[in-house]
Design a protein around this nucleic acid. Sequence first.
DNA 1: GCCAACGTTGGC
DNA 2: GCCAACGTTGGC
Length: 154
Amino acid sequence: MQYWLVKSEPNECSIEDFHRSPGIPIPWDGVRNYQARNFLNQMAQGDAVLLYHSSCQHIGISGILNVTRTAYTDPLQFQPESPYFDAKSKVDKPRWVAVDMVFTQKFSGIVPLARLKSLTALSECYLFTHKRLSVMPLTFQEFTLMEHLGGLPT
DNA sequence: GCCAACGTTGGC
DNA sequence: GCCAACGTTGGC
């Protein structure tokens, strides 16, 4: 079992989108950063993923997802009308991958970024050491701490 | 291989 | 809207 954190602007994809469709896997696609892609490739079925809402009113962790399908070719890279189109990616040698994730838990409230920043136990977290990365691994300790914060009243 | 220019992310 | 961080591109 591995632990991850993924970022998304909630107007693109939020915990609500997953909550609305329990049991229905949703593609996590459009990742266009090599380090993030490499982490997507490492994901295994059943891995636990914290969802982080960025660039919005309530920045922070909104809930938990689980990986249901490991990395596969992201079809958006071949669709010229998609904002995630990549003209340099070839069908016989795709650059980008997607995984599928399913709803697991919506926190009672967003765990705010400021709260996460205040905890020394998270000071070495990828969230702070690799500021602009959108897919990152978490240690078991980091994951369980953030999961616990999500279960507390806000 | 170096590095300046440029573009994007994302908090504030 | 600003700007720091930082990844990518392309000339040399």
